[in-house]
Nucleic acid binder design. Sequence first.
DNA 1: AGGACGCCCTGTTCGC
DNA 2: TGCGAACAGGGCGTCC
Length: 261
Amino acid sequence: MPELPDVEAFKRYLDATALHQPIDTVRVGAPRLLHDTTPQGLGRKLHGQALESTRRHGKYLFARVDDAGWLVLHFGMSGRLQYAKASGQLPQDAELLLQFENQAGLAYIAPRKLGRIDWSDAPDDYIAAHGLGPDALAIDRASFRDLARGRRGGVKSWLMDQSSLAGIGNLYADEILFQAGIHPGQAVAKLDDDTLQTLHKTLRRVLCQAIEAGADPDAMPRNFLLPHRRAGDRCPRCGDTVATTKVGGRTAYYCPRCQSG
DNA sequence: AGGACGCCCTGTTCGC
DNA sequence: TGCGAACAGGGCGTCC
């Protein structure tokens, strides 16, 4: 689930619910998700402080903790946030549970425990240290084209490469390529300037539409491929049977008739 | 450099 | 119907 649009939805959810509330206690249910801090260290940083603002880069969410630094969350394959006015209503074994002084609580839940909980003094340094490329929604057309130049290999691998472009995962790479009419295995080097311009425009449109839909698959535009990721499903544009192939060990869904290359 | 692979986890779906 | 295998939207390390 958690690709750029999902994390943007989490950000807006956190902004609307959990800001400016002093933190009482911090519970870490999955210490192995912490890499550069410890449950005790995190508790010391957060106790008595409040989340004041948030920032998203790619699939990462940063929450500023007063002037102390930033709580960093990555949602892996299954992570999400849940807020409740009574923290007792939240799963007490959440991978991370913040209990506020006002009795409310914010839970970070990652059932598959493949996410990441970190602490950072400066998001820009964190982004650089983790080798993340520019956010997929922040890059302009010219930079996008420059990025494609000199890139070898297939277009889907490129879109999903977080060091090149941050935020796009398996689902939205498929959606963007479907909407742009490009085969996932198409070589980046074979895309001409016009096609790259279309791809960049499509990428922005797909991600923005997904954000508008709150990243909810059931609320996506009708022409989206995203809800049709099952064997035998039909292409929403031409009705042909959707095909699959493997790219980078993951399943790519595409329409053999609508996507060339 | 980029791609294929195995691995980290656990919940859901698939296929016999 | 039941049960083990395969798979799922993440990323990292290793090898070629």
